[in-house]
């Protein structure tokens, strides 16, 4: 405590080093964020003079069916996404931390999709879902493979598949770091005590890598709400805006319907939702960690 206190008041050097990043943060995050909240209370259209209208944008939001539908879609997506991606990431991490050949090559391959831009992935998978799937469907006579992305359900699972595939590698890296830090002597000791590999995982590895869950859940959950480019290039809301995620809804409001301030109000609501979920989740995970 003493050390911390001293460094906080620690004079010129402390502030000299802090200032550049603090100024950058102010300019690109904090100030625009506050201006954005102000704009959500006005009739701002990015060009003309605007007037202050209080919470009218937010009360309009209550009757915006499309907004709530896309929020519901996003929530459903987030649920499946978070579950699947952590399972997948953990599974891959377990796989590549074992003594198997081509371990590094596999790590790279799993991480690779994460380095490609979401827009491009969307277009690539668009081709796979529509052309490749329907070719396979034709060959095998499965009509279910020929309607991909033209129905709400296939659009939903299309989104889940592409994003899970893309981001599983990222989560995998986090898990790898924690799995590799599990002390070998603990594992050996349990082996001597006669624990099988499931018991080893359940009783030793799992509790020790629990902090990784906190991080991964936090990252994937907030990512799930922020996904945009994959949605834009894969389904663009089709059919009938039923696969529209919250970010795409905000984009359309602001840029196609040209209601900048209203779109900003939606963005503020989205921020509140993500912030609430994240804070709750971090709080509960931390509590759990302390108990360990």
């Amino acid at each position: 405590m003493n050390i911390r206190k001293r460094s906080l008041n620690g004079g010129a050097w402390y502030w000299t080093f802090l200032t550049p990043s603090f100024v950058a943060l102010m300019i690109v995050v904090l100030i625009p964020f506050i201006i954005g909240i102000y704009y959500s209370l006005t009739t701002w259209d990015a060009v003309n003079p605007y007037s202050f209208i209080g919470f009218k944008n937010f009360t309009n939001l209550l009757h915006d069916k499309l907004f709530w539908n896309s929020l519901l879609f996003t929530a459903k997506f987030a649920l499946v996404f978070v579950f699947l991606i952590n399972l997948l990431g953990l599974g891959l991490a377990m796989l590549v931390t074992r003594a198997i050949p081509f371990k590094n090559f596999m790590r790279t391959s799993f991480y690779l999709p994460n380095l490609i831009g979401g827009l491009i992935l969307g277009f690539i998978w668009n081709f796979i879902f529509i052309d490749v799937f329907s070719t396979i469907g034709d060959a095998l006579g499965i009509s279910g493979l020929k309607v991909w992305l033209s129905t709400t359900n296939t659009g939903f699972w299309g989104m889940v598949i592409i994003t899970a595939w893309q981001m599983a590698g990222y989560v995998m890296v986090i898990y790898i770091a924690y799995i590799e830090s599990v002390p070998v002597d603990l594992i050996e000791a349990s082996q001597i005590d006669g624990a099988n590999s499931w018991q080893q995982f359940r009783k030793i590895t799992f509790p020790l890598i629990f902090p990784a869950f906190t991080i991964s859940l936090f990252i994937t959950l907030s990512n799930a709400f922020k996904i945009f480019d994959q949605n834009l290039s894969l389904t663009k809301g089709a059919p009938g805006n039923t696969t529209q995620m919250i970010t795409l809804n905000i984009y359309q409001t602001a840029y196609s319907e040209k209601q900048m301030a209203y779109g900003q109000a939606k963005a503020v609501v989205m921020f509140l939702i993500i912030a609430t979920i994240s804070i709750l989740q971090v709080y509960f995970s931390k509590k759990r960690e302390v108990e360990q």
Partner: peptide, 20 residues
């Protein structure tokens, strides 16, 4: 109206041709 043709009518046509 802004966005009406594409985001409203065009989107609903997608549902209509899908029989939904």
């Amino acid at each position: 109206p802004n966005g009406w043709g594409m985001d409203k009518l065009g989107a609903d046509v997608q549902l209509y041709v899908g029989g939904k």
